[in-house]
Computed example of a mutant assay.
Amino acid sequence: MDGKCPFCELAPENIWFQNETGVVLWDGFPVSEGHSLVVHHQHVASLFDLEPELQSELWRLVTETRERLQEKFQPDGYNIGLNDGVAAGQTVMHAHIHVIPRWNDDVPDPRGGVRWIIPDKANYWGDE
Rank of each mutant, 00 (worst) to 15 (best):
I15V: 15
A88M: 11
A87V: 11
G112L: 04
L61Y: 05
Y124C: 08
I80R: 05
H98V: 07
R66P: 00
P52E: 12
E64Y: 10
V31M: 06
S36Q: 02
C8D: 07
F17D: 10
Q42I: 02
L61W: 00
I80D: 06
I100A: 06
H98R: 09
V86E: 14
G85M: 08
L47F: 15
L69F: 08
V99Y: 12
R111V: 12
D106C: 01
V114A: 15
E20K: 12
K4C: 09
W125P: 01
V92R: 03
M93P: 02
G81A: 02
D27Q: 01
C8Q: 01
A95Q: 00
I118Y: 00
L50W: 03
W16A: 02
G22T: 01
W59T: 07
P108E: 11
S56M: 14
D49H: 09
P75V: 04
E33D: 14
W16M: 05
G22Y: 04
G28A: 12
V44D: 04
Q90Y: 13
C8W: 00
R102D: 08
W116D: 01
W16P: 00
H98T: 10
W116P: 08
D127P: 07
K72P: 00
D120Y: 07
V62C: 09
D127V: 14
P6M: 01
H40T: 11
S46F: 12
Q18P: 04
Q74F: 08
H43E: 09
N83A: 13
D106G: 03
Y124M: 12
P30Y: 12
D105Y: 12
I15E: 01
G113N: 07
I97G: 07
F48N: 11
M1C: 05
G77S: 14
A45Y: 04
L47P: 03
N14H: 09
K121N: 13
F48T: 14
P30V: 07
P12I: 01
E67G: 10
L10P: 06
V99K: 05
N123K: 14
I118N: 13
P6Q: 01
P6H: 06
Q74V: 06
E128N: 13
Q18H: 07
P101Y: 13
E20N: 07
H94F: 12
D105L: 05
Q18S: 11
W59K: 03
W125N: 11
V86I: 14
V44R: 12
T65W: 04
P101D: 07
V62L: 08
W103H: 15
L50T: 06
E67V: 03
D109T: 08
V44F: 03
N104Y: 14
L47T: 11
H98Y: 06
A122Y: 06
G81T: 04
R66Q: 15
P119T: 09
K72W: 03
D2G: 11
D2F: 09
H94C: 03
G112Q: 08
Q74H: 15
Q55R: 15
I100M: 15
R102M: 08
H43A: 08
D120L: 10
F48D: 09
L50A: 06
V24C: 02
H35Q: 05
G34A: 04
Q74D: 12
E71F: 00
G28Y: 01
L25I: 05
P30F: 05
G81R: 04
C5R: 05
T65D: 14
Y124P: 02
S36L: 02
L58N: 04
F7G: 00
G22I: 08
E20M: 01
